[in-house]
Amino acid sequence: MNRMTNSLDFQAQALTLRAERQRIIAGNIANADTPGYVARDMDFAAALREATGTQAAGSTMTGASATAPGHLVIGSGSTSELGLKYAAPSQTNLDSNTVDMDRERASFVDNSVKYEATLRFINTDVRTMLDAMKSPNQG
């Protein structure tokens, strides 16, 4: 039973984290003109590893985890329980806002595509399971 839902559980965690990251990037885009706002992002690989920690420990699943957003400065800035990090400003701004619209939009699209990919994985898992449950004479 566990083996059957293992992959589904993993993808469900990934989907939740993707939705969370989407929300964070939406907040960054919303605050593109707010003075003093500091852009934030999630280290997705670390967050997923933490969320699925016990489950994926011995399996090959960890190799399939999504890539980390490349612009994060690892080890700098503070982190919260979700592994949120502050983005390093690429160009300094007089109002000390660190939202880089090009980067945020790229991350947003990247995250939406990966969200859809995760959804598709879930759908395929479900279909595979349903196919396995069918009796042979059902076609």
Binding site: E20, I24, A30, N31, D33, T34, S80, L82
Partner: peptide
């Protein structure tokens, strides 16, 4: 920035 709280996790950042 105005924080839009969620009961769990990090609050979202509205304006």
């Amino acid at each position: 920035t105005v924080l839009m709280g969620t009961p769990d996790g990090v609050p979202g950042a509205g304006v």
